[in-house]
Nucleic acid binder design. Structure first.
Lengths: 227, 227
DNA sequence: TTGCATATTCAACGCTTGTTGAATATGCTG
DNA sequence: CAGCATATTCAACAAGCGTTGAATATGCAA
């Protein structure tokens, strides 16, 4: 009703753009590459989405609502099951990450490309501040609030720095660079988000506790001897 | 002797290229932008470095040896001071990360741009596998070997997955996207690598222990209930 | 000063880029 | 069928791209 149903060719454009932007970044992809990959004329992308930048935004927007709804729902589920002290750190991180794995595993094949695109944007000093805030800040602050409840003695700045560690681990996993495959001699496959999350969740949960739990950090700012 | 000393203008080209590549990526920068920023003619980059891709490689190469020497030296120092069981996980991660902060703080101002460029390349599915291996794998495997010694009960795949978590946290910190500044309302500044590392080191050390220490993980692969 | 290697600029090339306006195809409504 | 909105292609544009060969400047050796 409110939005006309998209033509199949415009969806193909989004799919191909998603794949290419995730691999080569915004400037590394031409509209002609996208059009060729989608089997359409180069002018069609302009017709449906306007300028190249608008197409980039459309790709980034497309799956964000569904993605963040599933994460928020997972968090709400844990909160409903938990007592008044709220869900555990593990549960919060599980709700933050597992829906991404599930989308990649059960959703259409474009999800893997989309998650790699999010990784590209999140790690970019140019695009990150310009595009992440609008679509992801509200959700992230919701999770940080939950972490505050689970770690009541945490200092404000420690919570955010720990979140950045979590975000970094997640970002590199979503980028699926294949580097861990090489380093490990094939033992690990970066396409296996499930295996990555099986370690990432206990890893980062222990990290949060070590930095944010009562008595974890002494003194004022630095804790290690400088020499 | 073996290499002629570089002209001051060729260094300026490298400096400007470093800054722009770190911010916009390989395809987001033109040789004309670099030349203009360096105050030279566009043909000079070709004269000194060959093709655009060769210039990109030259920028990436320039500081890598010095960087990794300082990290390896820090590791060797801890190893010399430690008993036969080797340095602690914290010390290993400290040696892996602190030299980057020190380079940015005490070295010339281009170091911050260089580290952001490393973050860009490491997080890129296109450039990562193509460029990281040659310059960084040897060093990384040395650190992983040290971690194996510090965590003798760790499974092989767990060590590598945990390393990826560390690498991801480090990568996002080096990218200095400014996102944590916004999220935290100004409490954290992503340009402050020291503050980031003060949390990253205990955070990731606890993560390694939680996943890789004896008795940390039970059963075969998954540890959490699926529902 | 002359000579020569290195460094730098100049001018231009062929090609690709994003974008546009007009032309055509498609599919639904009457 | 006619009419019309939407979808798609066609052809072309001006601008910018990386790269090159020739021309000029620079700095040191004889």
């Amino acid at each position: 009703m409110s939005k006309r149903s998209p033509s199949p060719k415009s969806e193909r454009i989004l799919d191909v753009a998603e794949e290419l932007f995730a691999l080569h970044g915004y400037d590394g992809v031409t509209l002609r590459q996208i059009a060729t990959g989608a089997g359409v004329d180069v002018a069609l992308a302009n017709y449906h989405f306007g300028k190249k930048l608008d197409l980039f935004r459309a790709v980034f927007d497309r799956r964000s609502v569904e993605l963040n709804q599933s994460r928020l729902q997972a968090l709400r589920q844990f909160q409903a099951e938990a007592g008044p002290q709220g869900p555990s750190v593990e549960q919060i991180i599980e709700a933050f990450t597992r829906p991404l794995e599930i989308a990649q595993r059960d959703g259409d094949s474009g999800w893997a490309n989309y998650l790699a695109l999010v990784a590209y944007i999140n790690n970019s000093p140019y695009w990150g501040p310009k595009m992440m805030t609008k679509l992801f800040d509200k959700l992230v602050l919701e999770f940080i609030e939950a972490l505050r409840t689970a770690l009541p003695d945490a200092r404000e700045e420690d919570i955010f720095w720990c979140y950045q560690n979590l975000s970094g681990s997640l970002t590199l996993a979503l980028a699926r660079t294949g580097r861990i495959d090489k380093l490990s001699g094939g033992t690990c496959r970066s396409s296996d988000l499930g295996a990555a999350f099986d370690r990432m969740i206990p890893f980062t949960a222990a990290g949060f506790r070590a930095v944010c739990q009562k008595g974890a950090r002494t003194g004022t700012t630095r804790k290690k001897r400088s020499r």
